[in-house]
Design a protein around this nucleic acid. Structure first.
Length: 302
DNA sequence: TGCTACCTAAGTGGGATCAG
DNA sequence: CTGATCCCACTTAGGTAGCA
């Protein structure tokens, strides 16, 4: 016997309107006009032969039938969404879109990606980068490595490492009468600041037990990688971001870390991912590889 | 803020036709 | 006879405008 089901459009319209208790808000969420929501709800009520909403002059509320029907449809739509995501994941199990900061990509991820490709040659990695902070695009990307807590609470997060900073400069600036040998000496050099991380220098000076440098003397750039480039040219002292955004100082001889003083930042490097994608083979492979390469045990953030 | 009338565009289904 | 294709009428979804 065939199932007697409402149309998916009507179910979506009713679920959104019931959840938001507003036809207009539901219309905005579903990218249609409020008229379309009204049509859909009305057709659903006609099909059921019962009113689902009490229409007031300025608002709507659920009838008893509406209150009964709402959780049923909500759960059903959730299950459809989960199932759809599973099938979609099966369709392209070998592709992986990863979002990371450009400094992390250049200094840490790209030098190690060869190892991942050697181990998983059939997984195609698409790397997307950003110079400054961004909201992880959970719809578009499979995985992300971010410094801040992502705004979307439905995203799975796990800590890779606590972020920390330490100064980096050209070896040309070291030693001698006018060179850098103590933390106080930094006050005589331009300090390269990242405008999204203004607390790096004050945090580090506090850790070093030295009065912070005058702000007006700082040069500001929009990414750590630009600061490193400027520091290599001897144009100032950059703040190195550990652990994933640091240049390899054994290879990159144009930069040195003059002090062993490392100051922890309040944030951490997080691996973020939509929960329903965690079981995708490519996501699982990349996540395990990343944790191994980062040398961390999984630690989920609540 | 929601309802209704009216309109348009896109989708659907059934019949006609044709080729293998 | 069967399957593919085309055409056309009908249905459906959603938009605009006006109203309560």
């Amino acid at each position: 016997m065939p199932r007697k089901l409402p149309s998916l459009s009507a179910a979506k319209a009713f679920e959104a309107a019931a959840r938001l208790l507003s036809f207009r808000a539901a219309a905005e969420e579903l990218s249609v006009t409020h008229s379309a929501i009204s049509h859909q709800v009305k057709s659903l009520e006609a099909q059921l032969g019962v009113l689902l909403f009490k229409r007031g002059p300025q608002s709507v509320s659920l009838t008893e039938a509406g209150r009964l029907y709402f959780p049923v449809l909500r759960d059903a739509l959730d299950r459809i969404a989960e199932g759809t995501e599973l099938v979609r994941a099966m369709e392209s199990p070998k592709e992986l879109t990863v979002q990371v900061y450009i400094t992390m990509a250049v200094n840490w991820l790209i030098p190690r990606l060869y190892d991942f490709q050697q181990r998983f040659p059939d997984i195609k990695v698409r790397l997307e980068t950003s110079r400054v902070s961004w909201d992880f695009d959970a719809e578009h990307a499979d995985l992300g490595i971010v410094l801040q807590t992502p705004s979307d609470p439905s995203v799975h997060r796990e800590v890779l490492a606590r972020a920390a900073v330490t100064p980096l400069c050209s070896p040309k600036l070291l030693g001698g009468k006018n060179g850098i040998s103590r933390p106080e000496d930094l006050h005589r050099f331009p300090l390269l600041k990242i405008y999204t991380s203004p607390q790096d220098w004050p945090t580090w000076f506090k850790k070093a037990g030295v009065e912070a440098a005058v702000e007006s003397e700082a040069i500001t750039v929009d990414s750590y990688i630009l600061a490193y480039e400027a520091a290599m040219e001897g144009q100032g002292v950059a703040m190195g971001l550990r652990p994933f955004a640091m240049p390899d100082l054994k290879v990159e001889r144009r930069l040195v870390a003059p002090f062993g003083i490392v100051a922890e930042r309040p944030d951490s490097w997080l691996l973020v991912c939509r929960p329903e994608r965690l079981d995708r083979p490519a996501v699982r492979a990349f996540r395990n590889w990343l944790r191994e390469a980062a040398g961390t045990a999984p630690a989920k953030v609540a």
